[in-house]
């Protein structure tokens, strides 16, 4: 492969990693607050359909993104309301949210399948975009691609450098202790779930207004589940999400490139590669149990009822 092909490969990886990064960053914050929301796939579907419908009627893909974020946040708040307010089981509620999101998105989008919108236009960053190699790979994309990278670093700063982030992590470690210290456990969890939903909705709307500007039932195609897997893969550390998302997107896009370049490798093996890569990485991470224990939010998935 020549330089131009490498640049387009890496540039495609950065874009393909965007929905994974957005959804995984949201889920990471949610899990850090102790809420395991398995509804990412459904929230992405709702975000995708809301984004598409809004962009279709308003003619603005940016309004579509906002609508997707709003719809995702609404799903996140619904999840928090059920699991925090009413202490419903988180796993079951999350799964129900995935199923509900699929059904709702199919229902809402039924008459929009096959319609077209004007896709979100790329915004080349002046100056940076003309850097050789890096410019084309990182700085010549649509807005959500930059925002996905921004959020990873912003959330890193938020969790480890801000007081609110410390509160959120404390709530995720031990809500009872946090509560006894007077920290707002339930409001924090509500906010974290809303943020997680908003980011999943953002990821979905990115798919339907920028990546493949169309609506089709099932178009999220499992990316929500990969995002949840990435959070474990990153051992709940935001910066490691970058590596995971790029690895996954890179193996997925790379196998297509290797075919176009004429490499003779069995295509079923190539299709399985992204999953094998993640499995291998998970096994390598799991060899060090201490690292996992140190990073896993201790109250993850456990219901919390404040003693009054």
């Amino acid at each position: 492969m020549n330089a131009a092909a490498w640049i387009s490969l890496l540039s495609a990886v950065v874009v393909a990693a965007t929905p994974l990064l957005l959804a995984a960053t949201g889920e990471l914050v949610c899990e850090r607050a102790g809420l395991l929301n398995l509804g990412v796939e459904g929230m992405m579907a709702v975000g995708a359909v809301s984004g598409f419908i809004t962009a279709y009627h308003t003619g603005s893909a940016y309004l579509g993104l906002l609508a997707g974020i709003g719809a995702g946040a609404a799903c996140g708040i619904l999840f928090a309301w059920l699991t925090v307010q009413w202490v419903a089981d988180q796993v079951a509620t999350g799964l129900a949210l995935t199923i509900f999101g699929h059904g709702l998105s199919g229902f809402l989008g039924h008459s929009y399948a096959g319609d077209t919108i004007t896709a979100l236009a790329p915004l080349a960053i002046p100056g940076l975009a003309s850097i050789p190699w890096l410019g084309a790979i990182f700085f010549d994309h649509s807005l959500p691609v930059y925002l996905a990278l921004f959020f990873v670093f912003a959330i890193y700063w938020f969790l480890y450098r801000s007081r609110a982030g410390l509160t959120l992590r404390s709530v995720g470690e031990d809500p009872a202790v946090a509560h006894s210290l007077g920290l707002p456990v339930n409001p924090t969890r509500h906010a974290a779930a809303a943020f997680g939903g908003a980011m999943a909705g953002f990821a979905g709307a990115f798919l339907s207004t920028a990546y493949t500007p169309m609506w089709a039932e099932g178009m999220v195609a499992g990316q929500g589940w990969i995002a949840i897997g990435l959070v474990v893969f990153a051992t709940w550390r935001p910066l490691r999400l970058l590596g995971g998302a790029w690895l996954f997107a890179g193996v997925g896009v790379g196998q297509l490139f290797s075919q176009a370049a004429g490499l003779s490798i069995n295509t079923y093996l190539l299709s399985a590669l992204p999953y094998l890569a993640v499995l291998l990485a998970l096994v390598l991470i799991s060899r060090d149990p201490l690292r996992i224990r140190l990073n896993t939010p201790a109250s993850l998935g456990k219901p919390f009822r404040a003693e009054t």
Binding site: A16, Y211, T212, M214, M219, Q223, G252, V253, L256, A260
Partner: peptide, 8 residues
């Protein structure tokens, strides 16, 4: 799979 077909 719109996303995968797009990448291809």
């Amino acid at each position: 799979d719109p996303a995968k077909e797009r990448e291809a």
